[in-house]
């Protein structure tokens, strides 16, 4: 059963660096060598930790109140690069449930919905404005993301609407799993293959 996502209220941390790739979010040896449920400890380790393994005190996610962030404000092309779904698992393992950015890597964007993570596309100007308000005063850091109403409520009471494709929205709200939904189409899959076997017999040998 996938984690449901309905309303999320929490600290939003601004990480306004463009092109944060999934290798950066979690290194390959962590993907391969660390159990999935512990990968959150290695999220963004090359930014979060110094080479000796100690915390980099200047990194946003190491500072209060952002250590407790549930929402990440990010710059263009967040999650680009490798298809590793571990990037989503690591971000969620750290405690994040929502990423707000002007654009995302396509595979990462899809992977989020498979795990109960909500990625939201907002204009660069809007993300930068939210980030600037929080950077100026951490008192502004609490955001409420309401998926049902497709609105973000800021600490100052501003409401920002966002788009989510309806099927994905429903799957998050109800915690539905894609495999379960597709298995309902088994008859159509079988019919496709029967038809296709006549057109492309060389595929079925």
């Amino acid at each position: 059963m996938m984690k449901k996502f309905t309303v999320l209220k929490g600290i939003a941390a601004p990480l306004m660096v463009p092109n944060i790739d999934t290798d950066r979010i979690i290194r390959i040896e962590r993907c391969a060598g660390i159990p999935r449920e512990r990968q959150g400890e290695y999220m963004l380790e090359m930014m979060r930790l110094d080479p000796d393994g100690s915390e980099n005190p200047h990194f946003i996610l190491n500072k209060p109140p952002f250590r407790e962030a549930k929402i990440l404000l990010a710059a263009e092309n967040f999650g680009c690069g490798s298809s590793r779904e571990n990037a989503v698992w690591a971000l969620m393992g750290w405690g994040l449930r929502c990423i707000i950015a002007p654009s995302f890597g396509d595979i990462f964007f899809g992977n989020c919905f498979q795990n109960g993570m909500l990625p939201i596309r907002l204009s660069a100007a809007t993300v930068e404005r939210l980030a600037a308000a929080i950077e100026a005063d951490a008192g502004n850091a609490v955001l409420t993301v309401d998926l049902e109403r497709q609105r973000i409520l800021t600490a100052q009471g501003e409401e920002i609407t966002f788009e989510v494709e309806p099927l994905r929205r429903r799957m998050l709200l109800e915690g539905l799993d894609e495999i379960g939904l597709t298995l309902e189409h088994e008859a159509e899959i079988a019919a496709f293959q029967n038809r296709d076997r006549g057109v492309r017999p060389w595929l079925y040998v």
């Binding site: 298809s83 590793r84 779904e85 571990n86 989503v88 396509d106 595979i107 899809g110 992977n111 498979q114 795990n115 494709e165 894609e178 495999i179 939904l181 597709t182 298995l183 189409h185 088994e186 899959i189 293959q193």
Partner: peptide
């Protein structure tokens, strides 16, 4: 041809399909 995630990979094994939005 395109890359997929882990969940989609399990989906392919189970159903021989992928759920997609047209780019």
């Amino acid at each position: 041809a395109w890359g997929i995630g882990s969940s989609e990979g399990v989906h392919v094994l189970a159903t021989q399909t992928v759920v997609q939005r047209k780019p």
